[in-house]
Design a protein around this nucleic acid. Structure first.
Length: 190
DNA sequence: TAGGCCATCTGGTCCT
DNA sequence: AGGACCAGATGGCCTA
């Protein structure tokens, strides 16, 4: 069908959500231990060269796979109706209405609802991509995207870090807005 | 092969 | 009433 999901479903090597929540200092002595991706070349101006090198070594590779697959959206038929079979007595009125509909009408309605849901999820993915773009994380065709959960957790930490750096001025603020992951992880103070 | 991530479908619920 | 939102289920793809 119209699986217009052209989204690249490339993924990082799953940085643990806990890793994203925890500042580097709480993760042992290994320093910035974000292993979920490769080094970002997105904002080199914000990132001192030596720091970039450090980041490069610290972050490790997320398994860069040049031939990342395109969105192989697994489309399946609409026969999987085993979900939510524990229907409550609510919404019985709408069910009555639906029962009055003919089979083609019901199919049309289902397709319409499915289409709306797909669009909603696509819009959500677009917003997620927009969030990824402004995150201090690797961007590029040869770099895997952050997973959704990783994006959200990293964004949270990034916001916290920025907020904290503004509330409590830190010597490192001379590095402009720290857009390097090492700064994010190492200076995270909660 | 198991586990992670994702897209999609679907029914229920909430909101306008 | 219709649309948005949500969560559960399902199956596909990919990586370790």
């Amino acid at each position: 069908m119209d699986s217009d999901a052209s989204l690249v479903s490339s993924r990082p090597s799953s940085p643990e959500p806990d890793d994203l929540f925890l500042p580097a200092r709480s993760k042992g002595s290994s320093g910035s231990a974000f292993t979920g991706g490769t080094v970002s070349s997105s904002t080199p101006s914000d990132c001192p060269p030596e720091l970039s090198a450090e980041l490069r070594s610290a972050m490790g590779s997320a398994g860069v796979h040049p031939g990342d697959k395109l969105g192989g959206s697994g489309f399946k038929s609409s026969s999987s109706s085993t979900s939510s079979s524990t229907s409550s007595a609510a919404a019985s009125s709408t069910k009555k209405d639906k029962k009055q509909m003919t089979e083609p009408e019901l199919q049309q309605l289902r397709l319409k609802i499915n289409s709306r849901e797909r669009k909603r999820m696509h819009d959500l993915n677009i917003a997620m991509d927009g969030l990824r773009e402004v995150m201090p994380y690797a961007h590029g065709p040869s770099v895997r995207k952050l997973s959704k959960i990783a994006t959200l957790l990293l964004a949270r930490n990034y916001i916290l870090m920025l907020t904290n750096s503004w509330v409590n001025p830190h010597p490192l603020r001379t590095v402009a807005v720290p857009s390097c992951l090492s700064l994010i992880w190492e200076n995270m103070v909660f």
